[in-house]
């Protein structure tokens, strides 16, 4: 089933979208969080999603690796549709990295063990191979000297960079960021954003939920504004910030940029 859809898409389009979301609907009890969301993400595209709290932006990206279950519509990640099949879900999760607002590092494991856990047990890599890869990525996020420490011994910014390295160790095709800088002190936000910019320059496909408009301006190919469970507006950052179309976007931007 999945192979046929994959083959069909390759025939239709030489560069198929890596994520294809169709008519997505989700409810929390009676609360309608996501309403008819349509979204396609191409390879290497960087998308920034912003919007007021409760607009469903986090829920949307959490649906992509099935931390939330949607009720209607379809999500296809790299040719595989998300269903209740546990094996398929785990496969997609290992191909989609996620970075959380509160880091969620494993406190009982060292930084290095945090990074090598999934490569060893999910990717079945040898420990030596996984260690090598992890050290390589920890060097990229500029904290190789902290490898033997525990997460509790690091600062917030360092922890978030370890979390990025942990996700990258699975060599994902897509990276999801759920407000990665919201729990950080201002000076630590910078070091995390720098890491993310470097990652963007390396050609990673990224979906970032954030309020860092400077970051959006710099790296985003597309900025999406969500409100009340709907995509209100999407545009390239230049047009999005300079002449927003809807009043709701204008109001949001004036509030977020003038505070």
């Amino acid at each position: 089933m999945t192979q046929t859809t994959k083959a069909k898409k390759v025939n239709l389009d030489t560069n198929p979208p890596i994520i294809k979301i169709d008519k997505l609907n989700k409810w929390f009890g009676k609360f309608h969080v996501l309403k008819d969301i349509d979204l396609q993400v191409n390879k290497t595209e960087k998308i920034v999603i912003c919007g007021p709290s409760g607009s469903g932006k986090s829920t949307l990206i959490r649906c992509i690796n099935r931390l939330e279950v949607h009720q209607e519509g379809s999500i296809v990640v790299d040719g595989t549709e998300l269903t209740d099949d546990v094996k398929q879900i785990n496969e997609i999760r290992s191909d989609v990295g996620m970075v959380f607002q509160h880091f969620n590092l494993f406190p009982h494991l060292t930084v290095l063990e945090n990074c090598t856990l999934a490569p060893i047990w999910v990717r079945k890599k040898s420990k030596m191979e996984a260690d090598e890869l992890a050290m390589d990525l920890l060097t990229k996020v500029r904290i190789p000297d902290q490898a033997k420490k525990y997460p509790g011994q690091l600062s917030g910014g360092q922890q978030q960079r370890v979390a990025i390295a942990r996700a990258l160790c699975m060599q994902p095709r897509v990276m999801l960021f759920d407000e990665p800088t919201s729990a950080l002190d201002p000076e630590m936000i910078k070091e995390v954003l720098e890491t993310m910019i470097e990652l963007a320059e390396s050609g990673m496909t990224m979906l970032v939920v954030t309020h860092e408009m400077g970051f959006a301006n710099k790296v985003a190919d597309r900025v999406i504004f969500m409100d009340e469970g709907q995509i209100v507006e999407q545009n390239d950052p230049k047009n999005f910030f300079n002449n927003p179309k809807s009043d709701r976007t204008k109001l949001f931007l004036s509030q977020i940029l003038n505070h």
Partner: peptide, 17 residues
């Protein structure tokens, strides 16, 4: 915490792992 479970899921660990 729930975040730990979500993090474990997000890197592709299965239930018993």
């Amino acid at each position: 915490s729930k975040g730990q479970i979500e993090a474990a899921k997000s890197i592709g660990l299965n239930r018993s792992q």
